[in-house]
Design a protein around this nucleic acid. Structure first.
Length: 576
RNA sequence: CGGGAUGUAGCGCAGUCCGGUUAGCGCGCUUCGUUCGGGACGAAGAGGCCGGGAGUUCAAAUCUCCCCAUCCCGACCA
């Protein structure tokens, strides 16, 4: 492609509204432009990268035996009502009506659509297993679109749904995808950390997320250097035992604690350590008030809490609700309820070990001390609901865990029967008996993968594309000063084209520094320069790799094979 | 949803507090000339309903009110 005929609007300055590197570089290198918040235009150069990633995904998915579909974006409300998600998806799902008042959703995900498709087509156990996928747009009305294409309202996802006759089959499909995902990200030049994960609103059991370590990641990972345990914080567990407390149980008593509310203030006031307190928070779980109680030195993990309660959504209750259910202002809640008050209470599994604890008395400016579980209140509901943080002990080996931030680029998990049951999918087994298939679900954020590659591969000057996803393989910079030299450069460009090499040819009338600057910014892996030496004797062509400083001189007759070898070698490295 | 910040030429910004000729600067863009292996120089140009609306005033980019958009932070306190 001749740059003089292409549109690559590079910028010297960072755009004012970009804060993370990949976002800045994508705009500066002329890959994307913002259309409005959370919506981006892919320019020709950016689209090529997106298509390279899509091709890798498609090749690897096909290799795994998955079948490509294309589903409607406009999905009938009836499908969502059948699964029950029309009501549970919330405002994240964009809903619209047609002229007749029929309701639709712009698909935020396609479980229902694929389940329905398979239900229409598949009738026998002989048709299974099937892993059906598509590479298509998703719409999500995000609370806050952020960081360019990293979190946007409209994005491209590869989503796959496997259907098996039983759990053994599902395990096989799941493992195939585990390997396929590793292959895909490796080929994209991405180093990912697979972690244990929560299954989220899709529902399900086994689950693995593919994370790209990055300071700008929105997920927190907990990693064990000793045994290799890796988990999303949402799901992470740890060895946490309150040390045995050899104390005799004291009598329960009430203490005046004027304006002492937070754990820090309580620690000051009582002069004892934080784990003595029974931190009691009031949540609304799907609208119903629930009290969650954890040791004072721990925070609550709302995802674990939500799962333990079997709720769709949990959020801290507003002050008015707290006052209503506890009978006291915020800051004085505790599991020893006042006469006449009832509320569901869920305890962290460590709470029962607290001896002579302290907790709110459900009365303004009063706390209980000498609190002893079982004696002073009954523990009915119990679950691990605390948040694991750096320094906590690995659940497997006890070694201190460390924290890292990560960008989630892919997620695979076992869905189970949630959709096949609610949507009534059956096939006949060998005995002619109807059985319900079991599902798995596998997603990759394509645009986010592109941004993550840049986060992982750049320097001060710009992007450094891995060969596999680079918009072009070779960037040919011509420094021709007259028509004769232009003709010589054109000839090299034609040679490269004829050899089938993807080449971006900078034939613009601009200064060398300007062209080199653009080449570094755009980040195509191989740069060949046609300069003084070449125009002098026509045999020496300078070759420089974007990820190295050294330059080599190659004779014109061997430039094709030289480039072809470089390309083949680096593609091979990424595939192995 | 709450808090904060910002909207002035394609991009990055100054000017706004303290109202007053024709609204500036850098980059980019157009034309000509010279340069040209690390973002060249000169000359001449084009390009603005100062986010929108309503008000105050002789006079508004500038003051007041309302709206809209964009970006950041928080959705963590018992």
């Amino acid at each position: 492609m001749r740059m003089s005929r292409y549109l690559v609007p590079t910028l010297k300055e960072d755009p004012a509204d970009a804060v993370i590197t990949s976002h800045k570089l994508m705009i500066r290198a002329g890959l994307i432009r913002k259309e409005s918040a959370g919506m981006y235009i892919y320019l020709p150069l950016g689209l090529r990268v997106l298509q390279k990633i899509i091709t890798i995904i498609r090749e690897e998915m096909n290799k795994s035996g998955a079948l490509e579909f294309l589903m409607p974006e406009l999905t009938n409300a009836d499908l969502w009502k059948e699964s029950g998600r029309w009501h549970t998806m919330g405002p994240e799902m964009i809903r619209i009506k047609d002229r007749n008042g029929l309701e639709y959703a712009l698909a935020p995900t396609h479980e229902e659509a694929f389940t329905n498709a398979i239900r229409m087509i598949v009738t026998s156990y002989r048709d299974l297993p099937v892993n059906a996928y598509q590479i298509n747009t998703k719409f999500r009305d995000e609370i806050r679109p952020r960081f360019g294409v990293m979190r946007s309202k409209e994005f491209i996802m590869k989503d796959a749904y496997s259907f098996d006759i039983d759990e053994v089959g599902l395990e096989r499909s799941y493992q195939t995808m585990r390997q396929t995902y590793r292959n895909i990200f490796k080929r994209c030049g991405l180093e990912t950390i697979p972690v244990e994960a929560d299954t989220g609103s899709m529902g399900g059991s086994d689950s693995e997320e593919f994370m790209v370590a990055s300071e700008v990641g929105e997920e927190v990972l907990l990693l064990c250097d000793a045994c290799g345990y890796k988990s999303n914080q949402e799901r992470a567990t740890c060895q946490y035992e309150l040390s045995p407390q050899n104390e005799n149980a004291e009598a329960l008593s009430i203490v005046d604690t004027p304006n002492v509310r937070t754990i820090d203030e309580l620690v000051q006031f009582f002069g004892c350590s934080a784990h003595k307190f029974l931190k009691s928070l009031i949540y609304l779980a799907d609208g119903n008030p629930v009290m969650a109680v954890v040791p004072g030195d721990r925070d609550i993990n709302e995802v674990k809490l939500k799962n333990a309660l079997g709720a769709v959504e949990v959020a801290l209750a507003p002050d008015t609700v707290v006052e209503e259910v506890t009978g006291a202002p915020v800051g004085f809640a505790g599991p020893i309820l006042r006469e006449g008050k009832t509320i569901r209470i869920i305890f962290d599994t460590q709470v029962k070990h607290i001896v002579n604890g302290i907790t709110g008395a459900n009365e303004k400016d009063k706390h209980y001390k000498g609190v002893n579980p079982s004696r002073d209140f009954v523990i009915k509901d119990e679950a691990d609901i605390t948040r694991v943080v750096a320094g906590d002990k690995c659940p497997h080996c006890g070694y201190p865990l460390k924290e890292k931030k990560g960008i989630e680029v892919g997620h695979i998990f076992k869905l189970g029967y949630k959709y096949t049951k609610s949507m009534n999918v059956t096939v006949l087994d060998q005995n002619g008996k109807a059985i319900t298939p079991i599902m798995g679900c596998y997603g990759i954020g394509v645009n986010r993968t592109m941004a993550a590659v840049i986060e992982q591969h750049h320097d001060q000057r710009g992007i450094i594309w891995p060969m596999s996803v680079a918009p072009f393989h070779v960037h040919c910079v011509s420094l021709a000063k007259n028509e004769a030299e232009e003709a010589m450069a054109d000839e090299v460009y034609s040679m490269l084209l004829k050899a089938g090499i993807e080449v971006l040819y900078d034939d613009r009338k601009a200064s060398p520094g300007f062209k080199f600057g653009d080449a570094d910014l755009i980040g195509i892996p191989i740069r060949i320069t046609l300069g003084k030496a070449f125009f002098g004797d026509s045999s020496s062509i300078e070759v420089k790799l974007r990820n190295q400083d050294e330059k080599v001189i190659i004779a014109k007759d061997s430039i094709i094979t030289y480039c072809q070898n470089l390309i083949a070698e680096s593609l091979k490295t990424l595939e192995s």
